[in-house]
Every structure is written in C-alpha cells, then in structure tokens.
Amino acid sequence: MKKIINTIDAISGIGGWTSGILMTGALVLALAEIAIRTFFSGTLYIADEYSGYLMALVTLIGLAYTLRERGHIRMMFLVHILKGRTKTIYNMICLAIGFLFCIAFTWFTGEFFWDSVVNETQSMQLSETYLALPQAFLPLGGILLTLQFLSELLKGVAVLRNDTEGLHIYEEVDELGR
C-alpha cells in the first residue's frame, strides 16, 4: 500500500513540475511575441492561441500536485471541531467524495476529448490545431487528481492503522508563504 501511495505522490510531483515547465514555456512564448512585435513589427501568429492552450495544460496537470501539497482550500470549520480518529475518518469521507467526483470529472472530460478526436475538431486559427491534443490534458489531469485522492485516502487508512512510517503526510497548517 505504501508503495502505491508513494508512487502516486511521485506522479503528482511530476505533474506539478510539468505544470511549472509549461508555465515557463508560456512565459517564453509571451516574451518572444512581445519582442518580435516591438522590435521587428512581426508576430509569431500562434502566441495568443497557444498561450490559451498552455493555460489549460498548466491548470489541469497541476491540480493533483496542488492537492498533494494541500494547496486546494476548504472551509476547515467542521474539521477543527473534530479530534483524533473522528477527524481522520471525517477527512476520509471528504476525500472519498472528492475521489468519486474526480472519477466523474475524468469521465465527462474524457468524453469531451474523445468527441474532438472523432470529429477531428480543429481550431479556426492559423495553426488549425487539432483541439483533441490540448483537450487530452483535461481527462489526464482528471486521472492524476483521482489518483491523488486515492493516495490521500490510503494515507488516511495508514493513519488509522498508526503505521505512517515511510510516508509523507502533509498537514494543513499555518505555513507561511504558500
């Protein structure tokens, strides 16, 4: 079980890094467009369109990492009232709901992606990009997030068993500068 947890956590970590790298790509793209437009009165033609796709990629591929790092926010009112085992179990119920939602999310976005594959949907911009390519990141992000919810659930089980050695349990604490 611990192996599964750590593997999923690692995959989400890769997702987080990918998101960061894609964001750096978007930065380079935007700066290149500004430079070419300002100094050479030219254009890259695709800067606007592709920074849109990159935004979708950055968002979706980083969702799981954000969950792992306790980046997604929630109202902690109830959780703060609960203590010990009850708190863990309550959190696991929330995680299970999140897990189920993410399965649905993956399914819906998967259908959406497949629709674009089947119809060979293209953008109406100069690049005529097949939209299925960027849209593939919707279900992919969904899968990563589903897995991360699973990992968190398993971590809950480990906590209940009092056996968390070798696991990195992230706490929702007042950590500055997140």
Binding site: T43, A47, D48, L126
Partner: peptide, 13 residues
C-alpha cells in the same frame, strides 16, 4: 490572418 499576411501587414489574434 492570411489576408493581412498576404498584403504585407501583421495579423494579431
């Protein structure tokens, strides 16, 4: 974009 490109102008999307 193609039209503006063809006449030597710069299209911005």
């Amino acid at each position: 974009a193609l039209v503006m490109d063809a006449v030597g102008a710069t299209p911005h999307a």
